[in-house]
Design a protein around this nucleic acid. Sequence first.
RNA 1: GCCGGGAUGGCGGAAUCGGUAGACGCAGUGGACUCAAAAUCCACCGCUGGCAACAGUGUGGGGGUUCGACUCCCCCUCCCGGCACCA
Length: 865
Amino acid sequence: MQEKYAPADIEQAAQQHWNETAAFRAVEDASKPKYYCLSMFPYPSGKLHMGHVRNYTIGDVLTRYHRMRGFNVLQPMGWDAFGLPAENAAMANAVPPAKWTYDNIAYMKKQLQSLGFAIDWERELATCKPDYYKWNQWLFLRMLEKGLAYQKTGVVNWDPVDRTVLANEQVIDGRGWRTGAVVEKREIPMYYLAITKYAEALLASLDTLPGWPERVKTMQANWIGKSYGVRFAFPYELDGKQEKLWVFTTRADTIMGVTFCAVAAEHPLAARAARDNPALAAFVEECKRGSVMEADMATMEKKGMPTGIFVRHPLTDERIEVWVGNYVLMGYGEGAVMAVPAHDERDFHFAKKYALPIRQVIDIPGKPFSLDAWQEWYADKENGRCVNSGKYDGLGLAAAVDAIAADLKAKGLGDKQVTWRLRDWGISRQRYWGCPIPLIHCERCGTVPVPDSQLPVVLPEDCVPDGSGNPLARRSDFLDCACPKCGAKARRETDTMDTFVDSSWYYSRYASAGNDKAMVDERVKYWLPVDQYIGGIEHAILHLLYSRFWTKVMRDLGLVAFDEPFSRLLTQGMVLNEIFFRKPASGRISYFNPADVELKFDDKGNRTGAVLKSDGQPVESGGIGTMSKSKNNGVDPQALIEQYGADTARFFMMFASPPEQTLEWSDSGVEGSYRFLKRLWSFAAAVREAVMAAPAVPAKPDSALAAVRRDIHLNLKQANYDFGKFQFNTVASAAMKMLNALERAPKEAAECPALLREGLSILLRLLSPITPHICHHLWCELGYGGDILQAPWPEPIEEALAQDEIELVLQVNGKLRGAIKVPATAAKEQVEKLALASEAARKYMEGNPAKKVVVVPGRLVNIVV
RNA sequence: GCCGGGAUGGCGGAAUCGGUAGACGCAGUGGACUCAAAAUCCACCGCUGGCAACAGUGUGGGGGUUCGACUCCCCCUCCCGGCACCA
């Protein structure tokens, strides 16, 4: 056996062994429990980043752990290969997005393989390939047939210079990222999927997912946003006609406090009022400019303008003026709201700004109402009672809403209604590098679906976008086609699908790999649903919600039998690193990669500063942030693997923090992980001969050995518990503690080699999911026999854990004052007696009698005096 | 702004049901080995006071419940993720 740990050699050898034995090929086998472990597939951006390494290491640890626990495991991998960055790269380098994407896939696949992941590569897929996206198109057509896909207009960011639609991230401070032109909102026809038809189902079945983090379920429930309220109308007369202004509110109990109404700029009433009011028309235009993003809408200054149109209060007949408000969303509810400034914070500020009346109609006894400043309790739903509300005075929220809804209903002006925050899913993208939407536009027949027999509609792979519009619109070989209905000359739809479509069902395709006759086949019945899904917390809402929706549609089409695609979900935190920069007095901030920065410490280890290695001059720290190109704080996994090996990279990733939390990069932490693996290797080399000659289990170890053995089994017990919680950082700690214990075992004791043999076999198996290469080698070298992949998972032995005497903490008045030793079987009374008799107790009780003695079995004794 | 999450030594983090705060690792300090350095090994290591024994204090800040609070309750601050065309 080699003396020195040489990761490059042993990792290559182990990977070759796994390849040759097809160790990770997954085959359906009804006799074994299955475990489908899936990590979110990567976007092939060029090379792996640390977030990928973290994600896939977590998945691999779970995969290998379950294998050893006897499960038939599937861990596939593929590529989320359509998307915007390929078009950006095409513009920058004049390379077709297809070539760029396929090159990236080839490189990143090599990187993944060098990390030793237990992936079944035979099931690999890429969403940009026609044999995959054909089924996007096929299912879209099924949705069209069922009325789940439809066309309506939607608002997009329009760059007037490039004459193109921009993604939200391409809009910077209201301007196009390339042209700098002020972006306009523009309404264009788009295709939508009716996810709102599944709102109730998507909300209800969250309760069937105990394996999902509560926070993700809460976020999804809030996103779907079911709210119970009242939809009602303010009647008015305009242009000689009787009309109704409909609004929705969850606070109908405050209806007597309405002092004005507000409508969105896109509301018909706003357009009507603007017709003969140039100032208002200008304001409406102003509202229509600007961002389409909700975050911007919510943080911008709230502005409004009166329309001069009055409506009547449905219960009091009072005249109420209608305003146009830039904060009212046309897409939510009715595009109009009632305003109750006394009990809605936004309305309150709006009313103060424009000197509109504020009328208190909710009261909490003892709390004075004042118009000076908004107070939280004005919107209190629990304790408020109606006042100044006539017959409703004294009612609480629920009773008032009931009574008011009934009265509105009796007048034919409204009723209770449930509304949802969730909006239908707009899937049209005016972009080239995506899945073509399978529709044909015919002058005579209108929009005609592409017949199934003509699928897939293949995307040409040689286009090079230039940033001005969709290149498909200039490709006659793509555009021109015959109408499937009448045979006349027709034109293909050039919009492509949102890439969230691609990722909404790929997990099912892995289980149907290679089938060109059907979207999914019977193998899905064996593998699905996914037992463990792992991915970034940033996908907590959109990707997961769309996948859940898509699954329910497939279920209703009879394609799959499950309701929910992911039984258990682990949302991993982001990978962070420190940001270093200089900001010259004039000019732009420049960022420096942490690898090029040297940290300065005082002799107590406190940070005193940081300098750039190249010039020795100080740089400023911008704190810790997500690894990103813009902040130049990324660490290239390739360099890490080349310097230390895959096992060190994997170990550090698991050790540095628990999977759900953010992970802070640390070069010295990597060093420490490497040091541990080196120590493990040299220890194994040093004791190898003794261990190989020893029996598998120590006979009767003496007390020093028994303590070491207890330590090993105690750490194993803890580690197994932690595995169940996905807390791999403490599993790694437990492995380190085991090695510490084994190194300190008294080597002269007769049973020591047997203890080491047992201990190392536990340690190697425990560690093998995290650092599979080194464990594979040492398992062979130490002669345990067979492949460690087939070895059973270790379990602690009760006998090794047993103790005669235990130590309890002694507290006096809750303060730690010492410890006492008691027999492991001692009863409460006996422990109490021993505690009171102890020297520490007598000293700190200072002669006072004990008022109370609290005994926590196996833990502590607290004497209260 | 709204929704969700987080904050523990110089740093990453541990503490399973409310029961020894700081496991394990990093950094640092002292020592061994070495001509020297690296590597490795041993010891110390929350903060304040003290030569020490020890005492006080300490889990973002403020209050509360409890024999006992990192953990439960109320209020506040800061940081991170998402907000529907980044993936």
